[in-house]
């Protein structure tokens, strides 16, 4: 067994026992490793950094799924690979338009889409900072509530309530001014 596996597995086992220092060391050691993994496979550096963060959050929220009798690096790579495939799948869903239609749609859409994006931003700006960032993370970036909770350090129910109230406020605003 190689050195990285032995060292990282020891840190993971200590983390599962609640050792925050070992856990911080583990995540700090994994971040550059994941960054290299995603950067090799993606064109956009910003996407790679998003995936690094998503994978770290997944490691955190899914740590109960690690079986201590199996290699840690295999578990880690399966999660990173899953997040990468999930990223490609989301990208494909966004680009399902046949190519020959793209020209005409883009001409209309670029105007309408930018106007819509502008409206969304203007409405979002009226919300308090916490709710605005929660709605942006869950409804626009597509994170799960659990991931948003981990990222912002709130409980999952607080995230759900925040989003619900924020959306209600937005709906009321839209009804007010046609």
């Amino acid at each position: 067994m190689d050195l990285a596996e032995t060292r990282l597995k020891a840190l993971m086992l200590a983390s599962l026992d609640g050792d925050a220092k070992a856990y911080r060391a583990l995540l700090a050691a994994l971040a550059p490793h994941l960054r290299a993994y995603f950067a090799r496979r993606l064109a956009q550096a910003a996407d790679a950094e998003d995936l690094v963060q998503e994978t770290l959050i997944a490691i955190h929220s899914r740590r109960a799924s690690y079986d201590a009798t199996l290699p840690f690096t295999a578990w880690l790579h399966a999660i990173a690979r899953y997040k990468l495939i999930d990223h490609f799948r989301r990208g494909r869903l966004r680009r399902t338009l046949p190519l020959e239609d793209a020209g005409s749609v883009m001409a209309e859409e670029s105007h309408e889409a930018s106007a819509a994006a502008h409206d969304v931003e203007r409405l979002l700006a009226t919300l308090p900072e916490n709710r605005r960032s929660l709605i942006r993370q869950v409804k626009i970036e597509g994170l799960s509530t659990a991931e948003a909770a981990a990222r912002t350090g709130q409980s999952e129910s607080a995230v759900k309530v925040g989003i619900h109230r924020g959306l209600k406020k937005l709906a009321a605003l839209i009804r007010e001014k046609p």
Binding site: L16, G18, R151
Partner: peptide
């Protein structure tokens, strides 16, 4: 958020997980 801030935040939210947790969930 920057990745090192995320790591700080996650490390601040660490609760111990017992070895049989996955089996109990199932």
């Amino acid at each position: 958020m920057r990745t090192d801030e995320l790591i700080d935040r996650l490390a601040g939210h660490l609760a111990p997980v017992s070895r049989g947790a996955a089996g109990r969930i199932l």
